[in-house]
């Protein structure tokens, strides 16, 4: 892996594969009675979160702690940013404290690229606006590999609000890099204005897509979309694009149901569908920790050219 993880597309098939293979070992670590290794002892990982995030932050934090890294939290309340220092000044402040990696979540697309420009530390994109969420895509690939052997030749339907989804953008890049076929499904108002250059098929008819896919990947449907007139109502959205029990019957026998969380039960996914054995949503969360351990390890661990900022303990 190179110095930063900004776009999952930068990894390519080989890079993704490297992460997935290493994830196997960290899944094993996570299953131990004491799920902790000293691999990153003496390294410091900082969270720079410009947007509320509980799940991703906890997952990264757990990953870092299981690798024995020190963690530092720099959460910027969404309201106080504009009157405060520039992004560059914030980055330099964090760097001055001596960190090896900065995990960035920002509500603006591209912010991690700017952070990487100004920081010497490794930068991990933990979600930037509508743009990308690389570690989510990696854990999705891992989960598919875990259940179906590999992504190669699989057909994934990504359903819902693709336009505003960083998960969808990263998943499209990762799934197609790994040899999967992707169909995005949703009302035209929730698809990107242009799909020029996207290696995907497009459908507005979920029912006709379901029998053909190995994975149905549901995106979170946010209530704001209704207020801004992109859909008439959640009820109509659910009627056309919700994964109801009836629709599950159209899926192939081994087809998986995935969701990046948090779910709106009863909107994009029916409550009972979320709990079916074919739904691997909890596995996604579990694998998230191991995948993020792999990413941090590849960026900061053995083979990294980073200078230690602290005293390296004996492992």
């Amino acid at each position: 892996m190179s110095h930063d993880l900004l776009s999952v597309g930068d990894l390519g098939a080989d890079g993704i594969d490297e992460v997935l293979q290493l994830t196997d070992s960290f899944v094993e670590v996570s299953e131990r009675a004491i799920p902790k290794v000293p691999a990153l002892r003496g390294k410091t990982v900082a969270w720079l979160f410009y947007e509320d995030s509980t799940r991703t932050r906890l997952s990264f934090e757990t990953a870092a702690r299981r690798l024995s890294a020190d963690v530092m939290n720099f959460s910027v309340a969404s309201s106080s940013v504009k009157k405060g220092e520039s992004l560059r000044d914030t980055v330099q402040t964090i760097e001055a404290m001596g960190v090896d990696a900065i995990v960035v979540r920002h509500r603006s697309a591209g912010a991690p690229w700017q952070v990487a420009k100004w920081a010497d530390a490794s930068v991990v994109n933990a979600g930037d606006g509508w743009h990308e969420h690389p570690t989510q895509a990696l854990l999705d690939c891992y989960t598919i590999r875990q259940h179906l052997g590999s992504c190669e030749g699989r057909h994934v339907a990504i359903v819902g609000d693709v336009k505003h989804s960083r998960v969808a953008r990263s998943d499209v890049l990762a799934f197609t890099a790994m040899g999967a076929e992707v169909t995005i499904v949703g009302p035209p108002t929730l698809l990107p204005p242009s799909l020029e250059g996207w290696p995907v098929a497009v459908s507005h008819d979920l029912d006709s897509v379901l029998p053909k896919v190995d994975i149905v990947y549901l995106l979170r449907m946010q209530r704001e979309r209704m207020a801004s007139g992109l859909i008439p109502s959640l009820r109509e959205y659910t009627a056309r694009y919700g994964l109801t029990r009836r629709r599950v019957d159209r899926l192939g026998e081994d087809a998986l149901v995935m969701h990046p969380g948090p779910m709106n039960r009863g909107v994009e996914i029916a409550a009972d569908v979320a709990d079916l054995p074919r739904s691997v949503i909890v596995d996604q969360v579990r694998n998230g920790v191991a995948v993020r351990m792999a990413v941090l390890y590849l960026l900061l661990g053995a083979g990294s050219d980073k200078v230690l900022t602290g005293v390296e303990g004996a492992s």
Binding site: A109, G110, D128, G129, W130, H131, E132, P193, S194, G197
Partner: peptide, 15 residues
């Protein structure tokens, strides 16, 4: 500008 690049970059566009 709303188009190919805004869609890819995830930046809200104006048509």
């Amino acid at each position: 500008h709303e188009g190919e690049w805004s869609s890819r970059l995830g930046i809200p566009g104006q048509p």
